[in-house]
Amino acid sequence: MVVVMDGRASAEQVEAVIMRLEECGFSAHPIYGVRRIVIGAVGDRRVLNSLGLETMPGVERVVPIMKPYKLVSREAREENTVVRVGHVAIGGSQLAVIAGPCAVESREQLLAAAHMVQQAGAAILRGGAFKPRTSPYSFQGLGEKGLKLLAEAARQTGLATVTEVVDEHSLELAVEYVDMLQVGARNMQNFRLLQMVGRSGKPVLLKRGLSATVEEWLMAAEYIMSEGNGQIVLCERGIRTFEHSTRNTLDLSAVPLVKSLSHLPVIVDPSHATGDRRLVGPMARAAVAAGADGLLIEVHPEPTQALCDGPQSLTPAQFVSLMEELRAVAAAVGRAA
């Protein structure tokens, strides 16, 4: 349930409601909006009527939430959440473009990609330092060396940075070097990892699992938010279907659907969804038209030499052209890019 506080409620009244909830075994999560404060409460609904919350000073109303995901639901927060990653806002009027190579391969490769995507208009640099791959013989990333290179690229370009974490060790290292943590599709239901990134204090990019339903995806976000971290960006990256013409099937309908169900921002990864650089541009434009708050696009200085996901990575020239196209689409739907 959520407890909606009156717009004039004092800090003492809010704290009194939180204390009452916690006394009765509920986990209380205050959510501060522009116009009001709501308190998300997770616990045994059977004792709801005995709490007497409606009669407490400053309480406007109590709203039961029927969905299994509570804190990330639109019922808990009517306003859109805007996630801050360094100087970048995701979920506002500005389209946020995250770009860079799938994996950090070398200093020369990463710095070249970073300067190029920054000049083209990207706001955040992506680069994998820890690469969970299908084959144990594939390139697995540079580890901490890759994180240090991301930090150097950030200093040189002013870009915020995001990288994937795969376990407790990679998380402990990553929080020291990057601005945002990514939980990949394979780890979407790694609940212990979700709880740890929830406690990290860093913004989190949560990718949809390979075969996850929308509800399972939002429940994964609930794990993170239940640990006190509301800075979550959801990423649609395609799901596994019977179709083999593309790497995955990009579910663009999930973008407006999730934005109706949740207050969290939603971005789209057309690179992993299609696995084909020829399809990245059309799907990126379609994602913006569908209401996506941003894009995650793989760009490599020399895709044919990439150690990871070269076929889906754009060349620098292709990325520059795509950014120009995206500005036109974004303007048509009332956004800036």
Rank of each mutant, 00 (worst) to 15 (best):
T134H: 08
V280K: 02
V2W: 00
G121R: 07
E22F: 12
V280Y: 06
S211W: 04
H169M: 13
V299E: 01
E79M: 12
Q140K: 13
F26I: 01
V14R: 15
R192E: 01
T161Q: 10
T249L: 11
A9E: 08
A292K: 02
K131R: 14
V268H: 03
A9C: 14
G86W: 06
L110C: 10
K67S: 15
L205H: 03
G58F: 07
L279K: 07
V38Y: 01
A330T: 08
N49K: 15
E79T: 14
I239A: 05
A306W: 00
T304Y: 01
R74M: 10
M225F: 05
L307N: 00
L264K: 00
P301L: 10
R192Q: 06
M196Q: 14
R240Q: 13
T246C: 10
R46H: 13
I65W: 06
V178A: 07
P270A: 08
I37W: 01
G43I: 06
Q109I: 05
M5L: 15
G294P: 04
A174I: 10
L234T: 07
L252S: 01
E15M: 14
L257N: 00
F139E: 02
A112F: 11
K70Q: 11
V320I: 13
A330V: 05
M196A: 15
M323K: 03
S106Y: 08
K207L: 07
A292Q: 08
E324W: 12
G100K: 00
H169Y: 13
G201N: 12
A273V: 05
M196R: 11
V42M: 10
L171T: 05
I31N: 03
G310S: 09
P30T: 13
R45E: 14
R199Q: 15
R247W: 04
I98T: 05
G128W: 05
V34R: 14
R247L: 04
Q94D: 13
S313N: 09
K202A: 03
V214Q: 06
T213F: 10
I224N: 03
M323R: 09
A28P: 05
R133W: 03
P256E: 04
V258M: 14
